[in-house]
Nucleic acid binder design. Structure first.
Lengths: 351, 351
DNA sequence: TTATAAAATGTAAGCATTTACATTTTCTCC
DNA sequence: GGAGAAAATGTAAATGCTTACATTTTATAA
C-alpha cells in the first residue's frame, strides 16, 4: 500500500495525495475529504524512509549518555525525550559508557544514521585535553551538537549547564563559615565540569585562608560501597567533619561510611551531594544536595537545538546557577546560612 | 557526496561500490582496496534513508516505557539498548506515561517510523480488560512485539517475564511461616502482572487459612511520600507486622512511615520490596526485595526479538522465577527460611 | 587453442516519497 | 462571453541506495 494506491483509489495524482498528507499547497476541500477518507479506510501510512530520503530528515535526534541507568542521567533522558517529542522529534538513544573510543564511534554512528542533531548528556563528554574533544567539533560540522552539563566552544556547538565552580565555591564557603573545620571533596573524574567543581572547592578553601591540613580532595571512582570503603581507609589517615561529593551516589556511600563508623550525621559529619537525584530521597536522613537545575538545562538544550535546526540564530550557551538544597545530612546552621542565588539564569540565555 | 561520486572516482560502477559497502557479492581484492581507500579519503557515509528505502529497514527497534526516569525502567532501558546494539540495532526511545490513549498513539507512531520491532517495558502495557490490549495485537500484525514484564498471547507477540504470582505467594508464605501475623500488600495498579501479584499474595494467605483480619491489600498509587502518608492514615484503622509492596519505591515509602511512626524495622515491621532496584541500596537498613530477574528478562526479550526478526522460529514466552533477596528490612528468620528456587528459568525457554 | 566455467563488473529497475514546473479548471470582472 | 487571474491538479525529475540479471573478463582444463 503506497501513495500510488491511494491516488488511484481517489482518482487523483500522487502529488495531490502528497499535498493532503503534508498539508502543503492547495487542495479543494472535496478532494481532501475524499483522500482522507481513503487513507483512513485503508490504514495507509506514508513510508518514512522514502520521506526521509526526499526531505533528508526523519525528525530524529540522537541522545548520547554514558549510562541510562544512572539515576541522574535517566531523569535527563526522560526530560529530553519528552521535550523533543513535543517538538516533533524522536529520540535515538545511545549509551556509550565512559570509554573515549566508544563515545567517538557511537557519535559517528548516530550521524551516519542521519539524525538531525545530537545531545550529549553528562560532563564526561568533554575531556580536559582539548585534542580529545576534536570528535565533538568534527560532529558539529555535520549537525548541531548540544552538550548538557558540558562546556565546549565551537561552531554549531551549544551548551546548557550550570556553573559548577560557583556551586562548589558557595557550598564550601558556607560549610566553613558555619563552623566546619576539615572539609573533604570527593570526585569521580576530572572532566571539564569535574575540574570546575574541584577548582570551586579549592579556591573557596584558599580564599578563606585554610591551611593544607584543613581541606582535602580525592578521586574515588566507584559505587556506593566502594566509596564507603575508600572513606574507611582514608579516615585512618585523616578525619573530616564535612564531605562534599561530585554526585549523589558518592554521598550515599559517605552516608554508609558514617553509619558504619558510628558517626552521627550531620552532627559529627556533614554530607552534601550533587545533582539532586532521586537516590537522595531514599536514604535516612535525606541527603542534602546541590540542585544543578537539570530540568532547566534540558529545556534549554532542547530549545537551543530546535532553534538551531530551524536555522534560527541562537546563543551558544545557557549557564544556570545551581541551588544548594539542604536536607537531613547538613545541620540547621548550614541550611539557614543565607546568600541564596536569587536568579537561576546567570548566563547568556534563559531557557 | 554519494555512491555515484565514489564510483566515478574509483572508475567502477555503483554496483561494485555497493558490494564493497555491504560485503556482498564478488569483488576483486584490488578494486576493494581502491574503493575503500576512496571512501576513507572522502569520508563518505552511505545515506541511511536511501538504504532504508531499498532494504526496508534501518535496523531500529522501538522501546516503549512509561517513564525512563523510573529506576527500574531505566535499568531495563539500559540493558535493552546495550543488548540491541550488540545485535546491530538502534533504539528509538518512547516514554508514554501511564495513559492508555498515549500508549496507543505512540506505538502507532513508532510503527509508522518503520521500526523493525518494538519492546514494551513494564507491566502497565497489558490491561485487565482484553479489549484494551487489542492495540498491541494490532501492532503485532505489522512487526514483532515483545513484552518485558507483561503477558499477552497472540501471533507475533513475545513475552519475557518472571512469575509474579509465585514470587508473592512464596514471600507471603515465608512471612507467615516465620512468625508474622498481620500482612499488608500494597500495590500500584491492577495490570496483568499486578493482578498476578495480588492473587499470589491472597492465595498464600488463604492457603494457610488466615482470617480476613490477618491480611489486607490496598492500592496506593503514589510517590514515596504519598505511600508514607497513606500508611499513616491506614495504620489508625489496622496495624501490620509485615508489608509487601509491588515495587521498591513504595517499600521505601513504607520504611519512611516506619521511621516516622517510631517502629523498629524489621523487628516491629518487616518490609519487602519488589524489583531489586538501585533505590533499595540507598536506604538504611537496606531494603529486602524480590529480584524479578530483570537482566534475564531483557536478555530474553532481545533474543526473542532478534530471532523473530531473522524469521527464526521462537517460543512465545520466557518465564523466569523470581528470587527473594533478604537484606536489612526483614529479620534473620525470614532470610534463612529456605526453599530458594534452584532454577531461574521455569518457563518455556531460557534466554 | 578453445570451449567452459567461474569470477568480476556493469546496467537498469525498483524502493516511495517530495516538489518544481506545467497544465487544466474555475472564478471574477468588464 | 471572454480575458486574465487564481485555484486545483498533474507530470516528471530527483533523492541514493540495493540487487536481479546481463555482460565482460579471467581462469581452467581438454
Amino acid at each position: 500500500m503506497n501513495i500510488y494506491d491511494i491516488s488511484r483509489r481517489a482518482g487523483v495524482s500522487i502529488a495531490t495525495v502528497s499535498r493532503v498528507l503534508n498539508g502543503s499547497g492547495k487542495v479543494s476541500a472535496a478532494t481532501r475529504q475524499k483522500i482522507l477518507a481513503i487513507i483512513e479506510e485503508t490504514g495507509y501510512t506514508p513510508n518514512a524512509f522514502a520521506r526521509g530520503l526526499g526531505l533528508n530528515t526523519m525528525h530524529t535526534v540522537g541522545i548520547l549518555c554514558a549510562d541510562s541507568s544512572d539515576s541522574f542521567l535517566a531523569t535527563a533522558i526522560y526530560l529530553l525525550e519528552q521535550g523533543l517529542r513535543s517538538h516533533g522529534y524522536d529520540s535515538l538513544l545511545c549509551c556509550t559508557g565512559y570509554d573515549h573510543q566508544v563515545r567517538q564511534k557511537y557519535l559517528d554512528l548516530l550521524i551516519s544514521k542521519r539524525v538531525d542533531g545530537v545531545i550529549l548528556v553528562g560532563s564526561n563528554y568533554v575531556e580536559a585535553k582539548p585534542e580529545l574533544n576534536q570528535y565533538i567539533l568534527d560532529a558539529a560540522r555535520e549537525i548541531p551538537v548540544v552538550l548538557v552539563n558540558g562546556y565546549l566552544e565551537g561552531p554549531q556547538v551549544y551548551c546548557a549547564l550550570c556553573d559548577d565552580y560557583e556551586a562548589l565555591h558557595l557550598a564550601a564557603t558556607r560549610f566553613l563559615t558555619q563552623g566546619r573545620k576539615r572539609l573533604l571533596y570527593l570526585y569521580r573524574s576530572l572532566s571539564y565540569s569535574g575540574r570546575r567543581k574541584l577548582a570551586g572547592f579549592t579556591d573557596a578553601c584558599q580564599d578563606l585562608g585554610l591551611s593544607q591540613e584543613q581541606f582535602h580532595s580525592a578521586c574515588c571512582n566507584g559505587s556506593i560501597y566502594e566509596t564507603r570503603d575508600y572513606l574507611k581507609a582514608l579516615w585512618e589517615q585523616r578525619t573530616f567533619d564535612a564531605i562534599l561529593t561530585s554526585d549523589d551516589e558518592m554521598a550515599i556511600g559517605a552516608l554508609k561510611f558514617a553509619r558504619a563508623q558510628g558517626l552521627s550525621v550531620p552532627k559529627d559529619l556533614s554530607i552534601l551531594g550533587y545533582n539532586n537525584s532521586k537516590l537522595g530521597l531514599c536514604c535516612d536522613p535525606e541527603l542534602s544536595t546541590i540542585d544543578n537545575q537539570l530540568a532547566f538545562s534540558c529545556t534549554s538544550a532542547i530549545s537551543l537545538l530546535v532553534k538551531a535546526l530551524a536555522k534560527e540564530l541562537v546563543p551558544a550557551r545557557t549557564i544556570l546557577s545551581a541551588q544548594i538544597l539542604p536536607r537531613g545530612t547538613t545541620d540547621s546552621a548550614f541550611a539557614q546560612a543565607g546568600e541564596t542565588n536569587k536568579e537561576y539564569a546567570k548566563g547568556e540565555c534563559m531557557p
